[in-house]
Amino acid sequence: MTTSPIRVAVLAAFAWLVGCGSVATASDIPVYGYTVVRTYPHDPKAFTEGLFYDGGFLYESTGEYMGSGVRKVRLDTGEVAQHLDTPPGYFGEGIIVSGDHLLQLTWRDGVGFIYDRKTFAPVGKFSYPGEGWAMTRDAKHLYMSDGTPTIRVLDPVTLAQTGRIDVTADGVPLRMINELEWVKGEILANVWQTERIARIDPKTGRVTGWIDLSGLVDTSRMDDPADDVLNGIAYDAAHDRLFVTGKRWPALFEIRLKPKRSR
């Protein structure tokens, strides 16, 4: 996801206020801090839109009209082991695996691409209304964000929408939901242009916790502070490892959560 510089300040402030609840109202949502367990290299040119971990590799979708693609990345070295450019003219967004395929969303075109999971060969397309931002999955469903407070629930075979999760924090709809990751029965979601990740109960849509990643990277020192923000969550379920990164960040971090405070 990207935007024009004119809207950056307003959108950032709006996303933060909605993500955190009213500044004048106390919140019962707990806030978690983090400990960095290990730091890994990450391509500083990768405009990260989607990320997941599978079979010892990271799978990443990158955005921008002139740089979108899907890639398979070696975790320890950051080396790109496999890569395919998104068709020209499309802004790549979230990515997820479904059976023998990789699925990649695009931003405003209402078109997603289907690739062979092993070879990355294009095998088809699918369509959806509105924008596409990110995807994740559990054992039975796919979940898709579009920047609104609604997470769409999709059938993993037909890709048809079968349900929805309306996300709220302190009763307020949570907008700017971006990159998603399914972790231990809950959905983790980046809130675009903030340093927070929402922990979402998929049954109720309620935000049950905030992960505050402030201080992880000084984005003010990035080439484009407005867009080079936190975005990218991956989980290694077999070894209980949580990874996070951002757009054009030079590093990917394995983190461990720790209680911080209540707002």
Score class of each variant (00 low, 15 high):
S4Y: 06
I6R: 11
I6V: 15
R7L: 08
A9T: 09
A9F: 13
A9H: 11
A13L: 05
F14Y: 05
F14I: 01
W16L: 07
W16Y: 06
L17Y: 15
V18W: 15
D28E: 10
P30K: 06
Y34T: 05
Y34A: 01
R38Q: 08
H42A: 00
D43E: 02
K45Y: 10
E49V: 12
F52G: 05
Y53V: 01
D54N: 15
G56I: 08
Y59N: 04
Y59D: 00
S61K: 05
S61H: 14
T62C: 14
T62Q: 08
G63E: 04
E64D: 08
M66K: 08
S68T: 02
K72N: 04
Q82E: 06
Q82M: 09
E93Q: 01
E93P: 07
Q104G: 08
V111M: 01
V111K: 13
I114Y: 12
R117C: 10
F120Y: 07
P122M: 04
G124V: 08
G124M: 01
F126C: 03
Y128K: 10
G130Y: 03
E131R: 08
M135C: 14
R137V: 02
A139N: 05
H141D: 09
L142F: 03
Y143R: 05
G147H: 02
P149D: 07
P149H: 12
P149K: 02
T150F: 13
V153H: 14
V153P: 11
L154K: 12
D155I: 02
P156S: 06
V157N: 09
V157F: 12
T158H: 15
T162L: 13
T162P: 14
G163H: 15
V167Q: 01
T168S: 15
A169H: 14
V172K: 14
L174I: 06
L174F: 09
R175K: 03
I177Y: 03
I177W: 07
N178V: 01
E179V: 04
E179F: 11
E179G: 11
K184L: 04
K184D: 03
G185P: 12
E186H: 13
E186M: 15
E186T: 10
I187N: 01
A189N: 00
W192N: 00
Q193W: 06
T194M: 14
I197R: 12
R199K: 08
R199W: 01
R199I: 02
I200S: 07
P202D: 10
T208V: 15
G209C: 08
W210V: 08
W210N: 11
I211R: 10
L213A: 04
T219Q: 04
S220Q: 04
P225F: 09
P225T: 01
A226Y: 13
D227Q: 05
D227L: 09
L230I: 02
L230P: 04
N231C: 11
A234N: 02
Y235P: 00
A238T: 04
D240L: 07
V244Y: 15
T245R: 14
W249V: 01
F253N: 04
I255E: 12
P259A: 11
R261P: 06
S262H: 14
